[in-house]
Design a protein around this nucleic acid. Structure first.
Lengths: 251, 251
DNA sequence: GTCAATGGTTTGTCCTGACATATTTTGTCA
DNA sequence: TGACAAAATATGTCAGGACAAACCATTGAC
């Protein structure tokens, strides 16, 4: 019997030690590729850490770190005394903080944005509190109507502190708010969302091209960047007939 | 000038090296306590890793691991060349996979459950597919009406594969489904949720004590345990007038 | 024949040591 | 005084070794 029997064969990978990309990350990325492409089948056991590290020419801590990375992302499961297994792809999808604009782009629909209101003004108390900024601090206040194709989809209200990013109307027409925030270095990393439902008022129904009394999804959100700075407050209305939230959660 | 000036003082902690609890976890837990109790103020910089490790009598990798643990939970932020800072508590809440039952308990309301249907039967094709089990495999099928106080709150439908847990009607009346799953060793770790809205049919309105046409929140969810085994499928209806989802997301 | 002990395999934890790299501060020179 | 260079400081990465603990399968005793 030979060591190969102990686990699925992980193909050799070429590592670049001169690259600024960390070794553990290179290993993790190749491993992920091979899993996604099916070179390492779902449910199969990997070779043990020591052998793997040996064969790839890295130390065991580095190998462990690469594996840990994939374990945290839900692709692998480790069991002490047993080994490391590839889990089912269904469970693998990463949690993502995405905006409606991103979602539409990904699903192949053409997002279009009509800006109905755009002004810099002091934040209302309730919003200042949600953002954790002083009462009366200035924010950019936006009302946008988001279309998918020709159909209106969502009526969105946002407040962004002016010291986070100086928004311009033109940029907002072409890009999603989250793209602009990311580009400005304020990557949204955490968010608190409340999702509810109510029926449309007459005015809302007219704007969204729905009947009065139609069900609407409501979402209010506060988002923070990695440093804990509040970057966005949003209060949105979605047509329930055309949109629903898809979420992937991890404990 | 003395080294103490380099960062906030982290009080000494007592570590138990004979305990089965890992050192890094002991360190992380004490650190978390001190942050939560305000001993280490929000926004302050910690001492550098080497000093901290030195003073607590652990190696730097162990210290780093403890800090990394808190960084992943969003309590600390590290910047290379700068230091480690305590972030604002608002951002800190951990992502949790909780059930409605848990949520109600936490918010101090008294949850009560009326079981309207309970049977073991072959899974409908659509549900079998969501769970990733063979067509016709047996599941426990449940319809429950959940009350908060005296008011009906949600009408819940669930399917749980029989090989995951053998549910009993009595247990479900006293406990939430997630508690039972946890106790059986199938801790829900990942979930895919779709949240939408629609108006109540006449039958649904009668059960939920709402008017016909009242807005309802809909949620369908599939949950998996750490090993990637599907443990639960749920399709729920919530009264929008009495309930909304609160979510904490991390990228 | 059944149950308990045992040994091998594998991951989990922890240590020491070293060098790399990003950032800020200090110091020097024009 | 201003700009650039160098040093100090902090986290990031990587190696190699050692022991602990959980799990599984086999062996052995009753």
């Amino acid at each position: 019997m030979d060591r190969q029997a102990s686990g699925a064969l992980v193909p050799d990978v070429t590592l670049d030690r001169t690259s600024p990309v960390p070794l553990y990350y290179q290993v993790a990325t190749r491993l992920q590729q091979q899993i996604e492409e099916g070179d390492i089948p779902v449910g199969s056991r990997l070779e043990n850490e020591v052998e793997l590290a040996d064969r790839l020419g890295v130390s065991r801590p580095t190998m462990r770190r690469a594996i840990s990375y994939l374990v945290e992302r839900g692709m692998l499961v480790r069991k002490r005394g047993v080994g490391t297994q590839v889990v089912h792809p269904k469970v693998r999808r990463p949690v993502e903080l995405s905006s409606l604009y991103d979602d539409l782009l990904k699903s192949g629909q053409a997002p279009r944005t009509e800006i109905r209101e755009f002004e810099v003004r002091p934040a209302p108390d309730q919003i200042a509190e949600a953002l954790g900024i002083p009462f009366g601090a200035e924010v950019t206040w936006i009302e946008r109507l988001r279309f998918a194709g020709d159909e209106p989809l969502a009526l969105m209200h946002n407040a962004v502190p002016v010291d986070v990013i100086r928004l311009r109307r033109e940029d907002l027409e072409r890009n999603g708010l989250y793209d602009l925030l990311r580009a400005a270095g304020h990557v949204p990393r955490m968010a608190n969302q409340v999702v509810g439902a109510r029926v449309a008022s007459a005015g809302e129904a007219r704007i969204l091209d729905e009947a009065r009394g139609a069900p609407l999804l409501t979402m209010t959100r506060t988002a923070w960047d990695a440093a804990g700075k509040a970057v966005e407050y949003g209060s949105h209305l979605y047509r329930a007939s055309r949109y629903s939230f898809e979420l992937n959660l991890t404990s």
